[in-house]
Design a binder for these strands. Structure first.
Lengths: 174, 174
DNA sequence: TTATAATGTTGGTAGTAACAATGAAATCGG
DNA sequence: CCGATTTCATTGTTACTACCAACATTATAA
């Protein structure tokens, strides 16, 4: 179906229905790949500022967005193993960014809650990112900004649906 | 909403010049964060299909885009330490996706070149991604597709400039 | 009550990535 | 030309991440 060394097949697949789709998709693919690539590398060196890692940052963010969570909920939210999530919490708890509290309704479970320091760190990181994004948007027209946000939001939603549907566990790698 | 309860200064900074920028930037920030987040998690489990990791995939991609490279060039391209890049090559060479060849002009250096298998794997991965992106774009108008690609390309370029300029080595983490 | 399931923790293992040190080859200065 | 320095790639070491499996504790079902 998709041995692409040649591009005849993909053309055949959709050319009749939508002649520009292939070219548009190619352009989109190149642009998005580059964007993802840049942000991914940036993540390693910049998002995780102040003294936390990328995963820890996502954990903080999840706790701000969703409020106090149990470890299982957090692990699900972050697509992590619960043991990994537990260790992520260890690190954040050591730095006083959150606390584990036993759930009064289910004494097996814990409620993970941010401390003021954790909330403050998250706010600082968010503010930094927002500032960056503001600079990126500054010289665009307001209606273009709106269009971008809408489109990116839509992309995110569609991507999310697609990825959650498929879920083949690839990448054991080595 | 969100974390930004704290910062009046960002409002002061630009409110007079551009009244919608703050709100637009906020929306953009949320949309983009979500997109990045989704792609980042997907990376871990899906891009790296077939039998290679994310980093290995980027290495393949760099070799396709830039042709044969020395290890140093590749490490720079991937923002990796030389030693890490060398081990990435180990893995890919073991799977016969590339070969190391001594550079005839500098016998300290190696030229890393893809094998036919490596090229074919890259083509297959690209084709998969392209197919996904095609599906994402399929129900958008052609002019909207163009606008998206242009905007994303621009975002990538601006982000790239910004990130390469700053380069504070954060994230020692733990 | 006992059996089963769920929650979170810990141990073990593998992979990733950085820093440091090394060997080998090229380059520079005298 | 020769020694010192620099550059290129690799190996050793260390730290972190993430997965699986096993476990103690608690909840729920039979």
């Amino acid at each position: 179906m998709k041995s692409v060394a040649t591009n005849n097949q993909t053309q055949l697949a959709t050319a009749s229905a939508d002649p520009t789709l292939d070219r548009d998709a190619m352009q989109f693919h190149e642009a998005l790949s580059e964007l993802i690539r840049i942000y991914q590398f940036r993540d390693r060196k910049r998002i995780c500022c102040h003294d936390i890692s990328v995963t820890q940052c996502y954990a903080l963010d999840a706790l701000v967005r969703r409020g106090a969570l149990t470890l299982n909920e957090l692990a699900t939210e972050l697509y992590l193993d619960k043991s990994t999530a537990s260790r992520v919490l260890d690190a954040l708890e050591r730095k006083d960014y959150l606390v584990r509290e036993t759930d009064p309704e289910d004494r097996r479970a814990i409620q993970v809650a941010l401390t003021p320091q954790g909330r403050e760190l998250h706010a600082r990181i968010e503010a930094d990112l927002l500032e960056e994004h503001k600079r990126l948007l500054a010289d665009l027209d307001p209606e273009v900004r709106q269009a971008i946000s809408n489109l990116i939001g839509r992309l995110a939603r569609e991507a999310s649906e697609r990825f959650s549907r498929v879920d083949g566990s690839c990448c054991k790698a080595q």
